[in-house]
Amino acid sequence: MFRRVKGEVLERERPIPYDADRSAVEAARRDPRAFEALYRKYVAQVYSFALYETRDQHAAEDLTEQVFLHALRGLPRFREAGDGPDSTFRVWLFQIARNALANDRRWARRHPQAELDDAFAVAAPSDPAEEIAARDLAARAWSAIDDLPDDRRRALILRYVEEMSASEIGQVLGRSEGAVRVLVHRALRSVAERLKD
């Protein structure tokens, strides 16, 4: 598990993890119609990410469509270990989502249109619980998340909603694993401060 680097420093050798999607990806490479299995598996994850980022149902649908069309067309170019030992199809998919989101935002800045919804009106979790206090707490948490800097908010969403590891998030966001842990920690602290008020 460890290897010697320059005769002195010991560096942990990271094993190439098993990508749970490997067989599905290979099947889709052989026959693009098999891509549907990957689509069904990840459509809610990509859509959720898009919805949390855009806070608009239609924008989230557009982004989801872009991501899967891009992934289908780009599948022959996808290499499991192309972006490092932890690279997986899911990470690749979210990298596409992040890039599509950045493109959309650049476009929106150049072409200002209607304002985004003020609140998570669409994305507000439907909380059937009757506890008003719990609902109030959730609303305050949402408000606090909304005010986080982009990178912290994104790291938090990927950690909670997509249940990604720090390593996976790092690859999606182009940050180190340690930096992602700090982002999440800081995000939690910021939300905790807001919940104290």
């Binding site: 891509f35 069904r40 459509v43 809610a44 859509y47 979790p125 719990a134």
Partner: peptide
């Protein structure tokens, strides 16, 4: 609190099927 608040959403059935058709 965040675990309870940050839930995953599913797109509408109509959207999911329309995109599946397109793919």
């Amino acid at each position: 609190v965040l675990q309870r608040s940050l839930v995953r959403f599913h797109p509408s059935f109509r959207f999911e099927e329309r995109l599946a058709d397109r793919l």
